[in-house]
Simulated scan of single mutants.
Amino acid sequence: MIFARLMRMNEGPQHMCPRMAIEPALVAVETERIAGLVARLVETLPVEHLDELMFTVPVCVIAALIGFPPSHLQDVARLTRDFVACLSPLSDDIQLDSAHGAATRLRQLFSALLSDANDSSRFLSHVQSACAATAWRDREALIANLIGLLSQTCEASAGLIGNSLVALHREPGLLEGGQQVADLVAEVARYDSPVQNTRRFVTQQCNIEGNVLAPGDTVLLLLASANRDPGANPEPDRCLLERTQRRTFSFGAGRHQCPGQSLALAIAAEAVSAWLRRQPAASVGAFRWRYLPSLNGRIPRFHGDRDTQR
């Protein structure tokens, strides 16, 4: 029931209230806070391996902003990782069972958090004020969409962090000459998008470029291909950190523009910076990687065995 309530999956009237409540809270997050938060998490969480940093730190950042105490962050990250398995048709029965249990536990944690009115975070206070202003009281839908924030952060942010480090492996000089990690992450979001495609579902007959689509049809949107459109980005097949007027479709566009784009880029940039402070950029070449099986994501998994083929 979580998936059906997600605001990002529908534009119906019942999905507008969570959008109106949560989007302003996301936009209001001060990205300047992210550097300190990431630094604290990297120091306090057991993220000795790159994969752990990729899949744990971004979710913990969002969970901390929402208001979970430090003692809950690792559990929330682990449960979110289990939950996202239910979003993939490639998951097996064991993963789906684990995802169901994770969804149940996440719902319990969020229910307890929302019930503690005396200890609301700035983010939750913003959300709850918007709910009151619009007289929206669907608690289950709110919980579903807060879980959705974590699930959207999980693999997409891991992919953005990982693909940024892959770019450094392939072009070690990218950060020379005064280029910033934030520029690297912003360009990688376009050049090697962690979200390669998304889907839209037709609700009434329409015509797109001479093709008649019927209700129930599915439209596959190739976001990564749009990022490489030379009409949108000159020299699209080059990774140019100094690119001006960069157009990135990885976060959607128009009504489906992700309101957390700036936040996601900031989290990924700070996570990459934290890793490079631990491991110099030259050490990225010591890693090898394989990409996770996925129908829409491009997410590397790293290991240090030089003898294993990518």
Rank of each mutant, 00 (worst) to 15 (best):
R122T: 14
W136R: 06
D119F: 01
L174E: 08
M16P: 00
R306M: 07
V42S: 05
R105F: 00
L50V: 04
P18W: 02
A158K: 01
A77S: 11
T80E: 05
S120P: 01
S98A: 14
V61D: 02
D183L: 10
A28M: 04
V212G: 07
Q108H: 09
S283R: 03
C60T: 06
A117S: 13
T44H: 10
D237N: 14
S71I: 10
S71M: 04
L213I: 01
Q245M: 13
D237A: 15
Q205P: 15
V76E: 04
P280S: 08
V27K: 12
P300E: 02
R105V: 08
S294V: 00
G159C: 02
L73F: 02
L174R: 05
S225T: 12
A158S: 11
T203R: 10
E242I: 02
P194F: 13
G12F: 04
Y191D: 11
E52P: 00
R190T: 11
T248F: 04
G162Q: 09
R137D: 12
P194Y: 11
L113P: 08
R306H: 08
H303L: 02
P58W: 09
M20R: 11
G252M: 07
P172M: 05
G101C: 09
W289E: 01
L160R: 08
T104Q: 02
R200W: 06
Q204F: 05
V61W: 02
R139E: 14
F287H: 12
S111N: 11
R290P: 00
G148H: 04
Q257C: 05
G231L: 14
V38N: 08
G177P: 00
V195Y: 02
V42F: 03
L37I: 05
R78M: 07
V219W: 10
F55A: 06
D237G: 14
I66D: 08
P194Q: 09
Y191R: 07
R107H: 14
A232K: 11
D93Y: 02
N207Q: 13
H49Q: 14
A214I: 01
T44R: 13
Q95H: 10
L241K: 00
V185I: 09
P89K: 02
V84A: 05
C17Q: 07
G159L: 01
D237E: 15
R19A: 14
A282P: 00
P280K: 05
S71V: 14
G254H: 10
S151G: 05
L113G: 13
L65A: 04
P24I: 06
R243G: 15
L65K: 03
M54D: 09
R310H: 06
P18D: 04
P69F: 02
